[in-house]
Structures are given as structure tokens and as C-alpha cells.
């Protein structure tokens, strides 16, 4: 049921037009951060206001929305955002990746491959990949315009010199279509290979920083690396203890006072559907045996 005291999907039409124009320019220049006049939303900055505004500008009444945080549908902030759109847009919601037409995410790309009929909206805290090398927007904007990314390569190479490998494990920078260096939001670098040649449209919203950017479907996205130190997508060297998956990204959970651990899929929908299909992990099998 839609709350009639708000416009469809909360935002007023003029705001949506402004955001929609920014999204289209983002698509036209993949990886370039388009400034937009982000509004104060009824949730705090840093809690997904950019993603929420992009979602609000894209939703139609026919959409089926999925919201995840850390890969999970049931984390508090995911629940809160999903409720917000149920209330203000009256859209159907789902936890199943395959059934969703629009997915808003924080920090993960779902394990289930995305399709042509889907839009993935990322919540982005700091959209500027160069920000931790150069805090000034006036400078980083110049660097992007001149395609001056030497500083980023120097930083990554210093990592290799000091640690033997690149010491960035999430928000790992990528280069889009050979032009713009882009922050993929704080997804684990395990998810980076899914950014490129993705059949779904990927949109990124940073509310506090007032930026929107996009990856059209099947865009070329390359994680920055060096010939002698190629990019590696890594995960915990375990299988999921619940569904037995060996290729999914895992959360490490401390299960008792002795500090024992279990590893479970961070993508709750993926894990559940595998278990429903009869797959079992270490703990599920243990339990069945007892």
C-alpha cells in the first residue's frame, strides 16, 4: 500500500528529473562522476541516500525491488530501505536475486548472475577513487580530466614494494573502457570481476558527495594491476559451512567463547536457495548426522 502523503517513490518530480538527467549523462560517459544536487533524505547521509535517490528516480510501479546490505536481505539497513520503498512507491519486493528487476546494494554484488532485465544500484560512500591520495576535489577533478592516474599506480606499486602484493582488499579501483578510473564502492575485490561485461545496468549513487556514475551493460571494466602482479580476486579459503558452496564470498562468524569460527555465504539468498536445492555444508551435514 502506498503512503498517499508522499509523491510516488518519495521524491518530488523536479528532483527526479534532475537525478534522471544525471543518470543519463553518467551512462553516456561510463565511469565519470556526474555532480548532482543531492537532497536531504529521511535517512542519514552515509546510510545509502545516494542509492535511495537513484532507486527512487528509476522505480516504476511494475518493479520488483530487492535491497541488500553486506549481501544480506535481512540486515537492519536493508530492511529499513526496503520498507521505505514499499511505503512510498508501493512496489513489490523480493529476496530472490533472479526475481528482482531492481536491486539496491551496499558492499556486494549478488552471487547469482545478473541479467539484461535488471538494474543494480550501488550505495557509495566516497565516489572518488583518488580521494585518499589527494583530498581536494579541485585537484582530483583536474587529474581525471587529464587522465593523470600516475599517483594511483605509484600507490599500488608502493604496496607491492612494501608488502609483496597490493594491499587493497575492497573498494579496489578499476579503469572503465580504458578512460576513467572508478571506485566500485566498498565491494570486496572478490566481486570486481563481475563489474565488467555485466548484462545488467549498474548505477552508483553517492548522496553526501553529490555524485552519480554508471556502468552500462557489457562495459569493459579492468581492475588496476601490473603485468608482474596481476589482479587476484580473493576470498576465505573455505567452503560455506551451511550450503557447501566453494565459489561464493564468505562471512567469518565467531560461534563460541573459544573463538571457533564458521564460514557462511554473505549472499543470504544464494545460500538459502542452494540449501533448498539440497546442497549441504559441513555444519548442515553434522547436524543431520546428530
Amino acid at each position: 500500500m502506498t503512503d498517499q502523503s508522499y509523491n510516488f517513490a518519495y521524491l518530488d518530480e523536479q528532483t527526479k528529473r534532475m537525478i534522471r538527467r544525471a543518470i543519463l549523462k553518467g551512462i553516456a560517459v561510463p565511469g565519470y562522476q556526474v555532480p548532482f544536487a543531492s537532497r536531504e533524505m529521511p535517512m542519514p547521509y552515509g546510510w545509502g541516500t545516494g542509492g535511495v535517490q537513484v532507486t527512487a528516480a528509476c522505480l516504476t510501479p511494475e518493479d520488483r525491488l530487492k535491497v541488500i546490505d553486506q549481501g544480506a536481505d535481512d540486515t537492519t539497513n536493508a530492511v529499513s530501505i526496503r520498507k521505505f520503498f514499499q511505503r512510498t512507491a508501493g512496489v513489490a519486493t523480493t529476496e530472490a536475486t533472479a526475481e528482482a528487476t531492481l536491486i539496491q546494494t551496499r558492499h556486494r554484488i549478488p552471487e547469482h548472475p545478473l541479467t539484461e532485465d535488471q538494474i543494480l544500484v550501488y550505495q557509495v560512500p566516497i565516489p572518488e577513487p583518488l580521494r585518499f591520495l589527494e583530498p581536494r576535489e579541485t585537484e582530483t577533478r583536474k587529474m581525471h580530466s587529464l587522465e593523470e592516474y600516475g599517483l594511483m599506480h605509484v600507490k599500488l606499486y608502493e604496496d607491492i614494494a612494501r608488502h609483496g602484493s597490493i594491499a587493497t582488499s575492497y573498494a579496489y579501483p578499476v579503469k572503465v573502457e580504458g578512460r576513467y578510473v572508478m571506485d566500485p564502492s566498498p565491494i570486496p575485490k572478490f566481486d570486481n570481476p563481475k563489474l565488467g561485461d555485466c548484462p545488467a545496468l549498474q548505477l552508483f549513487g553517492a548522496g553526501r558527495e553529490q555524485r552519480i556514475y554508471a556502468l552500462p551493460p557489457h562495459t569493459q571494466v579492468v581492475s588496476l594491476d601490473f603485468d608482474d602482479h596481476p589482479f587476484q580476486a580473493t576470498k576465505a579459503p573455505h567452503d560455506c559451512d551451511l550450503c557447501g558452496a566453494s565459489e561464493s564470498y564468505l562471512d567469518e562468524v565467531i560461534v563460541d567463547d573459544a573463538g571457533n569460527r564458521m564460514f557462511v555465504c554473505s549472499d543470504t539468498d544464494f545460500c538459502r536457495s542452494r540449501r533448498e536445492a539440497g546442497h549441504a555444508g559441513r555444519l548442515t551435514m553434522q547436524e543431520a548426522a546428530e
Partner: peptide
């Protein structure tokens, strides 16, 4: 309002990022 939001957002779960840092 911007500062408070971003400061306090570190209360939100970050275990996916933390996991990759652990590894």
C-alpha cells in the same frame, strides 16, 4: 547533517569489507 551521517554510518555493518581485510 552530512558530517553526522557519515560519521555515524560506521556503526552500520561492514563485515564484508572487514572480512576481505582479515584475509
Amino acid at each position: 547533517v552530512q558530517a553526522t551521517g557519515f560519521l555515524e554510518h560506521i556503526k552500520l555493518p561492514h563485515y564484508v569489507d572487514f572480512q576481505s581485510e582479515l584475509e
